[in-house]
Structures are given as structure tokens and as C-alpha cells.
């Protein structure tokens, strides 16, 4: 069962943490020692610049990590460690897959606001608290239903396309489309940086051409139409 999600900035500063409600003193002690352990572990992992999903299995807990590199306005790397904690790995619960799903949802939250804040290395931790409701809903739901029925909201047209491309291209191919596209896990990819408008247009054109060649005309256009609709419906109530 999933116990929580942590996002840690380089240097070990936690920017977001969500933990399941604590019930006993023992659990509270366990979680606080877990957070401390993750902080130092994340610092070590980030300094080594390791890639891929890392998994640590302990007698009563499993946690999986993923390092995300974003670029700030000065084009400097900003690293974050996303950590998912579970008390055990249940059958049918693929923790790396869950982690990448939560990463996409986190980064795309409020039309990509969190992504922008993370790139600014914002220390205003209250901003991310808005994700608590999502996490509560996520933990209440069955993972199989979530992965089947709830697609992460698109942060932008391009990011929405990248999210959907997983159903059309292998992830190894998606990351070759542009140097700023990085792999989040088994199937999702994320843009580490804003790209200039002209470059973005070229990238979308390239994706359109590749999808057209592989799956025929109209596939890319219907994909973009769907994302536009989702973007307009997800942003309208808040605006």
C-alpha cells in the first residue's frame, strides 16, 4: 500500500511531502526516520547523477526514487528527487509506473504551475500543498482504475502530445525527438525546459510527420484536437 510521496530539491530540502495519516507512534517514528533517510539518500543520488528508477527495499517498506532535471531561467540544471513510499509492493502495483504517473500529475498540476515553480527553485512550500487533494484521491482509488481511466492533465499542447505519444511510440524513440525531452519512467517523458516558439513548432511538425508516416494521416490532428479540448476544459473553471 502506498504511504506517501516526497519531492526533494538538490541539497536535501523537501519541497513537497504527503504522507498517509499516521495512526500509531510507531508509524510516526517510522515515517520521520524514513524522511530523514530519503533526504540523505536523495542528496547522495543527485551528487552521483544517477539515472533511472532506483528502488530500496527494507523489511517493512519499499521506496522508489526518480531524479528529474529541470532547467531554470539561467539554463542551469535544477535537480529534484521524487520518492514514492509503500509499506510493501502488492501484486498489480507497479511502483515505478505509479511514480512516473504521479510525477506527470504533479508537474502538470494547475496547468503546469508546479513545473514553473520547481524551475524557479521556489522555496514557497505552501504552493505545492494544493497537490494534497489529488494525493488523497489517488490513495483512495484503485490503481488499476486510475491508470486505465484517469489520464494526467496536459500542462501544455506539446506536453500533452508527449503524454499521449506513449501509446504510439516506444519511450526510447520519444526521447530522441528533442534533446530537452527526458524520460520519467517506463513510458512517460517530460520537457526539462521551455523551448523557443519556432523550435516548438518544428518539434510538433516532426512529431506530426512521424505519426503520419507510421499510423497514417489524421492521427496527429485528432490527437492535438483531443488535447486542446482537455486543456480548455481543465483550465476554464479556474480561470
Amino acid at each position: 500500500m502506498i504511504k506517501g510521496l516526497l519531492v526533494i530539491q538538490q541539497g536535501g530540502i523537501p519541497v513537497y511531502s504527503f504522507m498517509q495519516e499516521k495512526t500509531t507512534d510507531e508509524q510516526e517514528l517510522f515515517i520521520s526516520s524514513f524522511v530523514t533517510a530519503i533526504q540523505s539518500f536523495a542528496k547522495m543520488v543527485m551528487s552521483r547523477e544517477e539515472d533511472g528508477v532506483l528502488r530500496v527495499v527494507m523489511p517493512h517498506a519499499v521506496f522508489v526514487f526518480r531524479i528529474l532535471t529541470l532547467h531554470n531561467e539561467k539554463q542551469k540544471d535544477v535537480q529534484y528527487c521524487f520518492a514514492l513510499l509503500a509499506d510493501s509492493e502488492k501484486k498489480g502495483e507497479d511502483l515505478p509506473e505509479m511514480l512516473e504517473y504521479l510525477m506527470v500529475c504533479f508537474l502538470a498540476h494547475e496547468s503546469g504551475r508546479f513545473n514553473k515553480e520547481l524551475r524557479k527553485t521556489s522555496q514557497d512550500l505552501v504552493v505545492y500543498k494544493a497537490f494534497d487533494e489529488f494525493m488523497k484521491g489517488f490513495l483512495r482509488s484503485d490503481w488499476k482504475t486510475v491508470r486505465k481511466k484517469v489520464r494526467p492533465a496536459p500542462a501544455s499542447i506539446l506536453q500533452g502530445i508527449l503524454n499521449e505519444l506513449r501509446n504510439y511510440m516506444p519511450i526510447e524513440q520519444i526521447v530522441t525527438l528533442h534533446p530537452k525531452i527526458q524520460r520519467l519512467g517506463p513510458s512517460y517523458a517530460w520537457l526539462s525546459d521551455d523551448i523557443p516558439a519556432g523550435e516548438e513548432e518544428n518539434l510538433m511538425k516532426k512529431i506530426g510527420q512521424e505519426l503520419g508516416q507510421t499510423y497514417g494521416k489524421g492521427v496527429y490532428e485528432s490527437l492535438v484536437d483531443g488535447i486542446r479540448k482537455r486543456l480548455s476544459t481543465s483550465s476554464s473553471p479556474r480561470d
Binding site: R166, N167, Y168, I171, G185, P186, S187
Partner: peptide, 11 residues
């Protein structure tokens, strides 16, 4: 495997 096993529809 290329499509992440069960994480994607083609997979």
C-alpha cells in the same frame, strides 16, 4: 518491453 509492458496500450 519497448512499450513499457502494461504501462501503455501497445505494450
Amino acid at each position: 518491453r519497448q512499450f513499457g509492458f502494461t504501462s501503455t496500450k501497445p505494450g
